[in-house]
Design a protein around this nucleic acid. Structure first.
Length: 472
RNA sequence: GGUCCCAUCGUCUAGCGGCCUAGGACGCUGGCCUCUCACGCCGGAGACACGGGUUCGAUUCCCGUUGGGACCA
């Protein structure tokens, strides 16, 4: 690939809602491409649609990118701050006769479109205003691009190869609406040109816009950038991923307890691969990422695999970091009150014993609950199965032994259990399960010695005795 | 409807004419480990959409069909 000169790519989201997975993947690929080739990654906010754009949404996008670690080198630029630039380019085209005023109202266009469809003709603009001699009184015109209707426009896409479009099929598209705002296709071209973008890497859904844009570049007298159209991310029903497929916004994944590195790794592998490798650090991704290994086929977002990666990265993560993240979740839920945080070192110990069986931070949070609460509710089924009359005495005996256990550590606690088991000639499960239920309320938890150690002597004995007392 | 794109296990993918009895990962599943659940380890089921070419030889190249998707309305 020709990479002489600095690579400049951009991510250009519309701030009309959440930052969702498709957008994130586009941003990620652009970012990886820029970093791989030591280029620049530019962030541009496409907010010309002022009725739908919000500052809140811009904040969500920027926060999401930061969370993922996708740092940008220039921007964020906002299109609303660049209106003069668009206007100047429109004027230039008008002056050179490459664009013309169109006085047709949306209603008129709509009517003619319907007429054309009814008559079996393609619903294309009929170019009525192309030959207009004088302005129409009392109307503010839109501006249309005078496109060629002969020949072909070939998009040389870095992922798809050459894609040919018949110019005849292309419309005289509006580049400036009657309210003076530039249209999407026009603003994009002007922006990419004036920002010296070298590679436009974007979703497949823009491939059909590309020939028009190429024509605009050449009308404006600019060399078009190189294009690369990424395959879409689909939902389980194989249609474009959208809200009805469940969690699609990046913020939802934060709330669900995902780690950014897991999401980055997962999204990188959607539509891109490097042999058999599944796990990539950001550094490796940057090293190995090229457009050559980007696939053409759309891919379905698979929650299970994403969770698996999240589990993997939770195992790798620093317990201190996890402790802080889980604590945040607990505060958000109101389980932990500001100023009443548990001892951080103790909490870290707790987190450590939960790591292995946690797929998300939310799971970790849930598993931490019995350790934080003063009182616990015993699961009825677990109680019925494990807290049976024959274990009442065992529990009392165990509690007694634990009272004099010093130091109160995994090793010493294990000795107590082993001693009791040998003495009574029972299986470990006979006592471990009832204790687990007594301490955590349920039948699933980390290893019982770890649970006891972290729970602490007082709480352990209190709960074991309470459980024994509750057996009828 | 028009234009464009796409097509390997359920899903993500490797494969860039012979190495393929099609490899890996998630998920599913049988077993081992075991104080529960996980983790881990060992094993299993599971795909080249179809039909024509091209070629000594097609998953791989070409054409068509089918299917799916996107865009424009």
């Amino acid at each position: 690939m020709n990479t002489t000169g600095t690579v400049r790519v951009r991510f250009a989201p519309s701030p009309t809602g959440a930052l969702h997975l498709g957008g994130v993947r586009t941003a990620l690929f652009n970012w990886l491409f820029a970093r791989h080739y030591n280029g620049k990654f530019i962030l541009r906010i496409e907010d010309t649609d002022q009725t739908r754009s919000t500052d809140e949404s811009i904040k969500v996008i920027l926060d999401g990118m930061k969370w993922l670690g996708l740092d940008w080198d220039e921007g964020p630029f906002r299109q609303t701050e660049r209106m003069e630039i668009y206007r100047a380019h429109v004027d230039k085209l008008l002056k050179e006769g490459k664009a013309y005023h169109c006085y047709c109202t949306p209603e008129e266009l709509d009517a003619r479109r319907k007429e054309a469809m009814a008559a079996g003709r393609p619903p294309k603009y009929d170019r009525k205003c192309r030959t207009l001699k004088a302005p129409v009184e009392g109307r503010t015109p839109a501006v249309r691009f005078l496109s060629s209707d002969e020949g072909q426009t070939i998009v040389r896409d870095l992922i798809r190869g050459a894609v040919t479009f018949e110019n005849q099929q292309l419309d005289d598209l509006i580049i400036q609406r009657s309210d003076g705002l530039p249209t999407y296709n026009f603003a994009v071209v002007v922006d990419d040109v004036t920002m010296n973008i070298t590679h436009v890497i974007r979703g497949d859904d823009h491939l059909n816009n590309t020939p028009r844009q190429i024509q605009l570049y050449s009308a404006l007298g600019y060399e078009p950038p190189k294009f690369a159209h990424l395959p879409m991310i689909l939902g389980p029903d194989k249609t474009k991923l959208s809200k009805r497929h469940g969690a699609t916004a990046i913020t939802e994944y934060i709330d669900l307890g995902y780690l950014p590195e897991a999401l980055v790794n997962y999204l990188a592998r959607l539509g891109w691969s490097s042999g058999d490798q599944e796990i990539f650090s950001p550094k490796e991704l940057i090293e190995k990422f090229t457009l050559e290994n980007v696939g053409k086929a759309p891919s379905v977002f698979n929650q299970e695999k994403c969770v698996w990666l999240n589990h993997h990265y939770i195992q790798q993560a620093d317990p201190g970091r996890l402790a802080e993240l889980v604590l945040e979740l607990l505060k958000k839920d109101g389980v932990v009150k500001q100023g009443a945080e548990p001892d951080l070192e103790w909490f870290k110990k707790l987190v450590k014993i939960l790591i292995e069986r946690s797929h998300t931070l939310v799971e970790m949070k849930t598993a931490a609950l019995p350790f934080l609460a003063d009182e616990i509710q015993l699961d009825e089924k677990a109680k019925a199965k494990h807290l049976t009359p024959d274990v009442a005495l065992l529990l009392i005996e165990l509690a007694g032994k634990l009272k004099s256990t010093e130091p109160f550590t995994h090793t010493e606690i294990e000795k107590v259990f082993n001693g009791l088991v040998a003495e009574k000639g029972i299986k470990l499960g006979k006592i471990a399960q009832p204790v687990r239920v007594a301490l955590t309320g349920g039948t699933v938890s980390p290893g019982i010695y770890d649970v006891i150690e972290v729970m602490g002597k007082d709480k352990t004995i209190k709960r074991v005795e309470a459980a024994a007392a509750g057996i009828k």
